[in-house]
Amino acid sequence: MSEHSQKIKELQLLASSQPEKKFAVFQAVWNLLSSDTPLSDIIQVLVECLKNQNHPMLRLAAVIALGDIVKFSPDQTQQVVDAGAVPVLIQLLHSPAGSVRDEILLAALLNVAKIAGMSEANIQVVLSHGALSYLPALLSHPKEAIREAVVWVIASIAIGNQSQIQAVFNAGLLPKVFKQLREGELETQMPAVWVISDVALYGSHQQVFAMISEGVIPPFCALLACQDTTLIDSVLYGLNHILEMAGEHSKTVAIFIEGCEGLAKIKSLQSHGNEKISRLARKIIHEYFPDHIHTSRNQQQPQ
């Protein structure tokens, strides 16, 4: 038996004999990570552990360990992709219910998001293995953390090329992202905002207009009234890109923004305590709402 096969066998035996001892299984995996075993061999062992449906705790430890590997460098992420981890991770997105299903699921989603976010080539690997087909249902998952992770996967794909962005449209994911803008917690709203901003930045004119026609402007502008400065800044950033992409049709987009009270919110942000936010709000008013510049200045004068 090869050393590679022996390590897999040892981990499987541990998971079988001590299923109630979560720490023991995790410790064995961490010991593997800190050993002198070449990283490529470690990754292959972890991928093989992911394939074993009889040991959910071992699969969980393996998927978390792979997450630790992919976060360090593009080179290590590429080794994970080359070892065939992506199709196995995607299989976990529709795995049978088990005692740790939500933990497996969450870790797998975060790994897919990290892998896709590294390069267009990785995005294509994720798409080619059908990840998008499982995401619509997962956006209705009862746990907020899982919905947040799903939106991060979508955001990681939306930084790709226009063909890859179109795959997000074709999967019917945009309206579900808009729902997270309206109803999600702050942690889920943030990646949802980045999905919109990424489409505006990297998408085609047709894709941006399609996003507008599907109803992005009202829930996007509504977030300008929130209390989180990072979220406000990201929304303004996205609106600015949408207006830039609209080009000669920017007046029409500006009317949509004004119609859902977005302009009033942008005006109020001109005096925001965060200089970056106030500066961007003034820029948007100056470039796309010139008729309101005088009014805005008057509103800022002391009474």
Rank of each mutant, 00 (worst) to 15 (best):
M1I: 06
S2W: 08
L11S: 02
S16K: 08
K21R: 03
F23L: 03
A24M: 07
Q27W: 00
V29E: 01
V29G: 02
V47K: 12
K51R: 12
Q53S: 13
A61F: 09
A65V: 08
A65Y: 15
Q76Y: 10
I90C: 07
S99D: 10
S99P: 15
V100C: 04
D102S: 03
A108F: 14
L109E: 12
L109Q: 13
L110A: 05
K114N: 14
I115D: 08
G117Q: 14
E120S: 05
S128E: 14
H129W: 12
L132G: 12
P142S: 08
A149P: 01
I154F: 09
G160T: 05
N161Y: 05
Q166A: 06
Q166M: 09
V168D: 07
F169P: 11
A171H: 12
L174W: 02
K179P: 00
K179V: 06
L181S: 07
V208Y: 07
E214C: 09
V216Q: 11
C221L: 03
C226H: 15
T230Y: 13
L231G: 02
I242Y: 04
L243H: 09
G247V: 03
E248T: 14
V253W: 07
A254H: 13
C260L: 04
G262Q: 06
L269V: 01
Q270R: 13
S271F: 01
G273Y: 04
R282V: 10
I284P: 13
P290N: 01
P290M: 03
P290L: 03
H294S: 15
T295W: 11
S296I: 05
P302A: 07
